[in-house]
Design a protein around this nucleic acid. Structure first.
Lengths: 215, 215
DNA sequence: CAAATATTGTTATATTTTTATCGATAAAAA
DNA sequence: TTTTTATCGATAAAAATATAACAATATTTG
């Protein structure tokens, strides 16, 4: 639906969700328009950078002296980030973190829908978590194929992560979100996003020592 | 303890944990030395970039034709990233995600120690999660002060996040890791890392459509 | 209605980050 | 022992990214 043929830098792409979060806040306070300067100040960025980022996604030009219509900007960002198109995903590993993710209904607002979970632990198999069925891992291939699912979430312990990732790829998964703090060896055409939460927190913790604040 | 006075870019800092994950894997296979080319190939990076990153943290020079000693490099990275110094943290919001984080023992390997959790839900107060006590939120200030804690983790619903963040800052917290997908308005000297998991997954999902793979 | 002002979008400049090049060197091979 | 090779570290070039400068233009103020 939305065009992404314009050159969109990695850095810009990572900033877009933060703009959106900021705009939601303004919209809730019924602020009808917003300037690049306001956004920049709110997020600690440069106003020109904000304008340039916005120019890449906005369908309507901003008005001098006024800025952008908050609701329009929200709609454009949501559209660009694909929050309007639903995409299905599967999750493997219905332990603590897996169940927490299954239990979070907010994914729907981002166009994401976890259709099923998989595990090898007989305790959880056959039950549901937040309305989502938990199947045995052996059924992964069948479900992924049947529903043509491309997105996989790994919440298993580190030792099992590579094996699960391999199974996912074999089943047809093309992008993997991995919470196990390990390096996955996968074909280069598979998009992998490692979410090493502990390392992420450690990085934040480092900033306390260094007192150099980088986001 | 470790010096960070050399100019370390944001981008480099984010790559360091991935080097470490990759090196752990090699070390487990008893690979004694590793070259920048090997690491770069494994992680899809440029070898020169890897060498430069390593130069900023390594205490020993690499040897021509051989590379770096795996264990030395691991030690240097762990040291630089502060995985050896323990730092305490508190967590607010003992719901699904909060409990999952409390239940994860791996934080210890990163020098992180969650000392207590806080909530307002009478159900969980007074109990323990993975050996960590859950107190009423009213006790946050007292605990943070008593143990001189600087690091706070927010796992409450979005509507409560700002209020919890304010309480944390008032209590003396200097760095906040926030899982609620909202923009927090806080003094500029407070380090904030927003962990918008759904947005993160949505970004990964976008790559499926665009088929341009950026990490 | 004219002047002042805030803001946009664009073009130009500066900075940062990445990648390429190259001489030096340790290990391996001839 | 000499030659070849893989690799490092440093410097140089290129690419990407961020910031500054500025003309154009709505809105507000006098």
């Amino acid at each position: 639906m939305q065009e992404q043929n314009v050159e969109m830098s990695k850095a810009t792409l990572n900033r877009l969700p933060s703009y959106l979060r900021y705009l939601y806040q303004l919209d809730k306070k019924n602020v009808p328009t917003v300037s690049s300067t306001t956004i920049a100040n709110g997020l600690g960025l440069n106003p020109v950078q904000v304008r340039k980022d916005i120019a890449l996604v906005a369908s309507v030009a901003g008005k001098p002296k006024t800025g952008y219509a908050t609701k329009d900007l929200i709609a454009d960002l949501e559209g660009y980030l694909g929050y309007n198109n639903t995409r299905d995903a599967v999750l493997v590993g219905a332990g603590g973190l897996g169940r927490a993710i299954l239990g979070y209904d907010g994914f729907r607002n981002y166009g994401l829908n976890i259709v099923a979970a998989f595990d090898v632990n007989e305790e959880s198999i056959g039950k549901e978590v937040n309305g989502k069925p938990v199947y045995h891992l052996d059924n992964l291939d069948s479900v992924v194929n049947r529903f043509k699912i491309r997105l996989g979430i790994i919440c298993v312990p580190s030792v099992a992560a590579q094996s699960v990732a391999d199974k996912m790829v074999k089943a047809g998964i093309r992008a993997i979100w991995c919470f196990a703090p390990v390096h996955l060896n996968l074909p280069p055409d598979i998009a992998v996003k490692g979410e090493d939460l502990a390392a992420s927190l450690a990085l934040l913790s480092m900033q306390l020592t260094t007192s150099s604040l980088n986001e």
